[in-house]
Amino acid sequence: MKHSLTLQIGPATFRIGSAWRAPIDQLADLYAGYPDRRGAIADFTVRLQPTNMLRRWVRPSIFITGDHGLADAAPMSLPHGLLAAEMGMNLQMALGWRRHLLLHASSVERDGRVLVMTGESGSGKSTLAALLGERGWRLMGDEFALLDLDKGAILPFPRLVSLKNQAIGVVQHVVGAQRMGPLLRATAKGDIRHLVPRPDVVARMAQGAMPALLLFPRFGHAAAIRPVGQGEAFMRLTQASTNYVALGEAGFVALTRFVTGVPACAIDFPSGEAAFEMIDRLWDEGV
């Protein structure tokens, strides 16, 4: 394709091609601190291509596809090209990654142990991970936690952190504007702005660690903690995994090991401060 870039995030390498320059330039800028993988053999190909020939030039419209694609994926406008590229990479991981059990979860590490947070979009898992990453934890990822199939470690997948709506201001207030990408207004999920992870996050993106606590956070409710049983955690994580079925027995074994070895709680929180207080308490009790 006319413009392209190869990125490595955690264990996965992506070759991203685009009919337009802008999305590739934005990616190159925001991923400047990641390893240079120019010319590498990629695990996945991502394509940002015009929805039809006319839409390359006139009111440009991006169709996100690649090795794996969805025929009915909603087209995106060129100003949202960076988001399209991120979604393209997520799509490849979600549909094509087989080397770990993929959990739709954020993860952070401290003292060699990992806190995994899973929940629907809007649960606050990305925001919490981003903020914890500025409070002495190592950010491992805000979208996918990779569960090792043999040993049970969590491996990082630290792409840009995708922040939505009110979370943008909250995080920017903490980290400053230099580490933030362009503000993408009025996407399908509202306003979105990406956060560039700290340099040590990228430097250590090959280092996994054993999970110590699983949380199901829910933002916007009065503070509450409820222990979650192994059965419930298992069922909810099968729903939160895009490749659980594809991995077959290996996925079942890995997930069983995870839920039987890691304590789990659901936490409701009205604010970041309330969440940090609960997390600190649960972490000290559990670890």
Binding site: T13, A40, I41, D43, G96, R98, R99
Partner: peptide
């Protein structure tokens, strides 16, 4: 090449499933 092996291994696993 080293990097090709896991890609092909994944594909075979999918086909076996």
């Amino acid at each position: 090449p080293d990097h090709v092996q896991p890609i092909l291994r994944d594909a075979r696993m999918d086909a076996e499933r």
